[in-house]
Nucleic acid binder design. Structure first.
Length: 494
RNA sequence: CGCGGGGUGGAGCAGCCUGGUUAGCUCGGAUGGCUCAUAACCAUCAGGUCGCAAGUUCAAAUCUUGCCCCCGCAACCA
């Protein structure tokens, strides 16, 4: 009986368009999910959207519609992106779902022993009717740029979650890897951050300053603030607390988050779980940010890369390839169109696409497309599996390309085209040729297996071409070379 | 002395923890080979004061100390 596995992704706030970071979140979780399924595990894979808060309400007001109507129209952008990157998610939760909202209210009540009323003090802009963070206030020199008015120091009533009560337990859980934060340096970073204890967190706002949210049970004047609402999605989506099936999946095996929100997932969220008497997630995969040409992507600079554009121009497999291999799983990465296209042309077209064509072509030409008894690929893939277990997906896929390279070297060494010339002249030649080609097919099938988590469509194509006993013709070449952002080295000079 | 990451041939990285073969890999460049393949593939070569300085040692990219530079983070920001 295989254990049922559960992986989660952060739920994005739906006031903007999906960006490349969301796509990365989805992709990393999907690679893990597919890998585990390939190994016989049942995997539940959550995704969703965060739909409450003032920014949403403001956007909706701008558009002259109700907040819910607004999120109804925008959340699909995120679900569509999931589909577009080929993410094999099983659940999609919206924080405006009735079940989620009811469950969060239940969670609030269950956390009562750790909730107290306090006051929140901060910089407030009357024009925005909102608090800004100290950081933002400082960055703007204490003056709201939108309203050209100085921020005021105000305080208001809030409910707080006593996260501080769980400092020791959370610290211990992280130190002992009960919650394993990957990579290791993020774990150290976070432990350092909380060495003076977890801070209590404000989890509500007065209704007058936050109208669009889940009502606080028993206090009509207060509405829940984002964190309690949003973080709860990880358990409400699998049925907590009313559908007992959630117990088959919780605790989550992996929770994928960006480094910017690690602290909430490593601090506040475990505190909430402990308060609820639930188990802690096993691993927190903290990935980095994607830069564009060495600098942060920003609308102002205009260097934002649209995941949809990448996929439309090069296909989903090319997208998955680049972001799983060339964006380091655990660190910041860098995207440029030149890098992307170069990886596409040299690695996908020249290496992988070509070797498939090469082997298929020889079998078609020398053996009329008939594939005989294919030996199991024997390449040692320990490094690949270790990397997968360690959540270093970029390292794992590197191994696949080492194997592609060695297949090319093998073909170069044994020279099947020379053996082919001897067929009919030397008695051993035909058997030898078959053996060589079948070895190549065996290697390709193994490569296909290893690509299943990363490039599922390509893996399927490889298997379709080589697994049926005779070559199945592909519709055109895999990964035709593309030159949109780089110059074709073979192009005739103008 | 706030915390963390990093500075290795043109570019991007590995190696550092557990000092010791000619500092490894990919891209790019040059030359050659091959002709089965998407003018693809394979081989060879060029190119590095391993940020700077001092120290430990028979021996340091690798350990210690000091300094310089770059990048994140610095709690309610999704």
């Amino acid at each position: 009986m295989n254990k049922k596995l559960y992986i989660t992704t952060a739920i994005p706030y739906v006031n903007g368009k999906p960006h490349i970071g969301h796509a990365l979140d989805y992709l990393l979780a999907d690679i893990w999910a597919r890998y585990q399924r390939q190994n016989g595990h049942e995997v539940r894979f959550q995704a969703g959207t965060d739909e409450h808060g003032n920014k949403i309400a403001a956007k909706a007001a701008e558009a002259g519609i109700e907040p819910k109507a607004y999120t109804d129209s925008t959340y699909v952008n995120f679900e569509n992106l999931m589909k577009k990157v080929g993410a094999s998610y099983t659940d999609f939760v919206r924080t405006t779902d009735p079940h989620h909202m009811q469950s969060v209210q239940y969670i609030w009540q269950k956390l009562q022993p750790y909730i107290y009323k306090g006051s929140y003090e901060g910089w407030y802009c009357v024009g925005c009717e909102a608090f800004v963070s100290d950081k933002e206030a400082a960055a703007n020199n204490g003056v709201c740029p939108d309203h050209n008015q100085p921020y005021q120091r105000l305080s208001e009533d809030n409910y707080y979650l006593k996260a501080s009560a769980f400092t020791d337990k959370v610290t211990e859980a992280i130190k002992s890897d009960q919650i394993k934060i990957v990579p290791e340096f993020r774990k150290r970073e976070f432990l350092e951050l909380i060495k003076d204890g977890l801070q209590d967190v404000s989890i509500s706002r007065p209704k007058k300053s936050l109208s669009w949210g889940i009502p606080v049970p028993g206090d009509p004047d207060q509405v829940m603030y984002v964190w309690l609402d949003a973080l709860s999605n990880y358990i409400t989506v699998i049925g907590y607390p009313d559908q007992s099936v959630w117990q088959d999946y919780w605790p989550a095996d992996v929770q994928v988050v960006g480094k910017d929100i690690m602290r909430f997932h490593a601090g506040l969220w475990p505190a909430m779980l402990l308060g609820l008497g639930l188990e802690l997630p096993k691993k927190l995969l903290v990935h980095g940010m994607i830069n564009a040409g060495g600098t942060k992507m920003s609308k102002t600079i205009g260097n934002v890369v649209e995941p949809n554009q990448v996929i439309d121009e090069y296909g989903v497999d090319a997208f998955r390839y680049f972001f799983s291999r060339h964006i380091p799983t655990l660190e910041d990465g860098d995207f440029t169109w030149e890098k992307f296209e170069s990886a596409y042309n040299t690695e996908l077209a020249n290496d992988l696409g070509n070797v498939i064509q090469r082997v298929a072509g020889m079998i078609t030409r020398y053996q009329s497309g008939v594939i005989g008894e294919v030996p199991e690929g024997e390449h040692d893939m320990t490094a690949y599996h270790n990397a997968m277990e360690n959540l270093e997906f970029d390292k794992a896929i590197d191994e696949v390309w080492l194997m592609i390279r060695s297949l090319n070297q093998y073909i170069e060494n044994v020279k099947p085209w020379e053996i082919a010339k001897k067929v009919g002249k030397e008695s051993e030649a035909e058997a030898h040729l078959t053996e060589v080609l079948n070895n190549s097919v065996g290697a390709l099938i193994q490569i296909g297996d290893l690509l299943v988590p990363f490039l599922p469509a390509v893996a399927e194509k490889i298997h379709r071409v080589f697994k049926s006993g005779s070559i199945v013709a592909t519709e055109g070449v895999l990964f035709p070379r593309i030159y949109k952002h780089t110059t074709d080295p073979n192009a005739p000079k103008a």
